[in-house]
Amino acid sequence: MKKNEQLIILELMNRRGMIKDKSLLYRLKNGFEGELEFIQWFGKYNKSHWTLETDYWFDMDGLKQIDDLLISSQKWIVVDVKHYWGKFQYINGNCILNNKLMKTDIFDSLETKTKKIRRLVADINSNIRVDSAMIFIGEHCQVELDCVPMAQVVMRNELMSFITGLEYANPMTDWMTRKIVDKLNEYRTKERPPDIALAPEQFSELLKGIQLDGCGHNDFSTDNRWITCKVCGTKETFKSVVSRHAIELSYLFYYYPKIVTTKNVHALMGGQITKRTVQKYLKEEFKVVGMRKNCYYKVR
């Protein structure tokens, strides 16, 4: 499972000193970690013929995203994973997290998506049943409900039992597999475009300098081909460093692709690699758009 573009942009903005209120970053990062943990649990404890479709974006009378789809030949389960910390309450149709009213009814949203998947599944086989599950995977999450939601509610300490207790499913035939893939792809669409990105005039505000992949440190030594972190020993080639910073620039200024120039990548890296070297590897790795001084690199 990959991080969505919004989270990627926020993490890069944070590294470059461009975020004051980090609440959205923490919320998206926490959600991603929760979904990743569910995928790991499913891979570890699923011993039956169920498959998992993750991060499914689809357009059926409007754009929707489903965290996970558990799929078998007889039954599907639409899954929402919530990685909350603290106390979640569902009272009179209101969702309250740590005494703060949430904007969305998460159970109503899940039911809406489940109904759409039922329509999709009906075109595959009308005998396949579609249910839903709300999984609270947070280690320190309490849940209080004043009614019984339409979705199955699964707490972290029940998750292993939920996965191992999935009813037996027959192996999927090749014909059924192809039909399911084709139907999912019929409605599949790209994720919602990010609504947070920088404008070109903000380039001067970025913290500049090479940040090594993985460790994120900026104290390093160089030789003819390699950059080596003095803190942890991480090594990375010049080509990899240049490519990665070009991609970083394209995400930071998501809606301004022309900003990815030799000059700007060189500046983002704090001038710590020569402009000629930056240009060399940009030309090797990416398509050049335009001519001479007005050219830029198509990164995404």
Rank of each mutant, 00 (worst) to 15 (best):
V289K: 14
I180F: 09
F286R: 08
Y297F: 14
E191D: 07
H140W: 12
S132F: 03
G31N: 02
K113Q: 12
K100Y: 12
W76F: 15
S250R: 12
W50Q: 01
E33N: 01
K82M: 01
V265L: 05
R292S: 15
F58L: 04
F220T: 10
Y281A: 00
W41L: 15
R27V: 02
M102F: 02
I8W: 07
E5H: 08
E284A: 06
F58T: 03
N157C: 12
D146S: 13
D67N: 13
M176I: 00
Y256K: 01
I8Q: 04
E248N: 04
R16M: 01
G86D: 12
L145M: 12
A151T: 04
N30S: 11
T164D: 04
C232P: 11
G31I: 06
V79L: 15
V241I: 14
V288E: 11
K183W: 02
I163L: 08
L206A: 09
K113T: 13
S109C: 09
W226R: 14
K263Y: 08
T274V: 01
P193C: 00
K113N: 15
I273A: 00
V289R: 13
G17V: 11
E158K: 14
M102H: 08
W175A: 13
S132G: 06
D59C: 07
D195N: 07
S204E: 03
K287T: 14
N99V: 00
C232Y: 12
A169Y: 06
D174H: 04
L252P: 01
L97C: 05
K280M: 09
W175H: 15
Q65L: 05
K2W: 05
T277F: 03
T173G: 08
Y56P: 04
V154S: 03
D213H: 13
M134P: 03
I77S: 07
Y56C: 03
T234A: 15
G271K: 01
K20H: 11
H217S: 11
A197W: 07
S132L: 03
I117Y: 11
T261E: 06
I137G: 00
T222K: 15
